[in-house]
């Protein structure tokens, strides 16, 4: 894994725009806007990002939003609860597919 993931990638993320400036800039501008205070607070968005980061299992995002959520004023307990939302949805998503299993069993069983 260490050959693929390097912590300096995160600090240099903006350089991804070197390959395609216009799209890169458009993405980062959009990204910045997404996390501004709006109908949701910046702190709420940061906690959502933290949960999603765990769902997509992105180490860069987990690093970034562990810090960001704290800076936005969330504490460890709140951050852990946010994470459990992702865990519940991931687990629930697996479990709710059990309904398909159940249907197949009921169709083909006696």
């Amino acid at each position: 894994m260490s050959d693929y993931y390097k912590s300096e990638h995160l600090a240099n993320f903006a350089k991804i725009a070197d390959g395609q400036k216009e799209l890169g800039q458009a993405f980062f501008s959009y990204y910045g806007k997404v996390f501004e205070d709006g109908a949701l607070t910046a702190r709420e968005k940061s906690l959502i990002a933290l949960a999603v980061a765990h769902a997509v299992q992105c180490p860069y995002c987990i690093d970034a939003y562990s810090k960001d959520a704290q800076e936005k004023g969330a504490d460890f307990e709140q951050m852990t609860e946010a994470l459990h939302v992702a865990v519940a949805i991931r687990g629930g998503a697996s479990l709710v597919h059990g309904m398909q299993m159940k249907m197949h069993v009921e169709e083909s069983g006696m």
Binding site: T41, A42, E71, K72
Partner: peptide, 20 residues
């Protein structure tokens, strides 16, 4: 008056004030 309990920067006071 809040200051962070750790090695990170203080957040936006306006945004946090409503929640607090």
């Amino acid at each position: 008056m809040t200051n962070p309990a750790g090695a990170f920067l203080a957040g936006s006071q306006a945004s946090m004030e409503r929640e607090w």
